[in-house]
Simulated assay, not measured.
Amino acid sequence: MTESTRNRSGSTTSTERESTSARTGMLERAMTLLSAFRPNEVTVSPTTLAKRAGLSKATGHRIVAEMVNLGMLERTVGGVRIGLRMFEIGQLVPRQRSLRRCAMPVMQELRDNTKLSVHLAVLDHGDTLYVDIVSKRQDLPSAVGGRIPAYATGVGKAMLAFSPSDVVSEVMSKRLKRYGPNTITDTEALRAELAEIRAEGVSYDREESSRGVACVAAPIRGGDGMLHGGISLTGHVAEIDYRRLTPIVQTAARIVGRRIEQDVVAQQEIAEAMLQATGPKPHLPNP
């Protein structure tokens, strides 16, 4: 660092602070643009992304161009889409990778046996974030990478019920917006619902996330109670038999939870074996 950006005492000058602020602002705006993509949208124009992100057209187009150069976005005939580089980075997230790997066989079996859509989700800043969906149908609104406030979904409520109190309080501190005809918009009613979910170990969505959509969900937890995510069986209201599906989803969640624990132990053992293998070589005497 040059003397022009740091004074003799070692403290940061206004020039460096402004540069850091600019970089932070750029990252924040890039994330806002990425978040402006909506479920099931493949291509969006830079102008539309800028408008959704609350940026000027010129600023939006400039940042989009930089994101294209970095591989975060790709240009298409109608605008831009999420780039493969973002997919590659996403695959590096240990939590998501382990969760998906352990859940996939269970999800496929659930789909084959029930003919319903199977959703795998994690809780992210009070939102339900769908990390995988196994389904042969295209008539449901959810999509991989899509998000919706956790209180408005069955799988989200299942995760909220077993989350730390500060996470729940943060959700309660905001206005509970209506997404479906039966979305819970009263905080006390939501508290009561979460208490019941904790007691029963299962959560239901009765047209809360979207009109005509219902689900049965359960939290995926480890033996120590740690929350890993949630899994649900989703379909149209007429397809969901809550009583029949409840034990099926609960059993699936327990199986995935056990597999995650076993997967973590296996990964630790592999890491230790690799560490030992790359350790100092024993000294061999000259022949």
Rank of each mutant, 00 (worst) to 15 (best):
T2I: 09
E3Y: 09
S4L: 13
S4F: 10
T5H: 08
T12V: 13
R17H: 06
S19F: 12
T20K: 15
S21C: 10
A22W: 08
R23W: 12
R23Y: 12
G25V: 00
M26Y: 11
M26K: 14
L27G: 08
E28Y: 13
R29L: 10
A30F: 06
S35N: 09
S35V: 04
R38A: 13
T43Y: 05
A50H: 00
A53H: 08
A53P: 04
G60Q: 06
E66K: 14
N69C: 10
N69F: 09
L73P: 02
L73Q: 01
E74R: 15
T76M: 06
G78M: 13
G79I: 03
I82D: 02
F87W: 15
E88V: 11
G90S: 13
Q91Y: 05
L92C: 12
P94M: 01
Q96S: 09
R100L: 09
R111N: 14
R111S: 11
T114Y: 04
S117C: 02
A121W: 02
L123R: 03
D127N: 15
D127E: 13
D132S: 04
D139R: 10
L140V: 07
A143F: 09
V144G: 07
G145L: 05
G145S: 07
R147C: 10
P149N: 01
A152Q: 02
T153P: 04
G156P: 01
M159F: 07
A161V: 01
F162L: 15
F162A: 12
S163M: 07
P164H: 05
P164S: 10
D166G: 03
V171L: 04
P181F: 08
I184H: 06
I184W: 04
T185L: 05
D186Y: 06
A195T: 05
E196A: 08
R198P: 06
R198F: 08
A199V: 09
A199R: 15
E200W: 08
G201M: 06
E207V: 01
E208Q: 13
S209Y: 04
A214F: 04
A214T: 06
C215Y: 00
A218T: 03
G230T: 03
I231L: 15
T234S: 11
G235V: 03
H236N: 12
I240L: 04
D241M: 07
Y242K: 10
R243L: 09
L245Y: 12
V256K: 00
G257R: 11
E261C: 03
L275Q: 13
L275H: 09
G279S: 14
G279K: 09
G279V: 07
H283K: 13
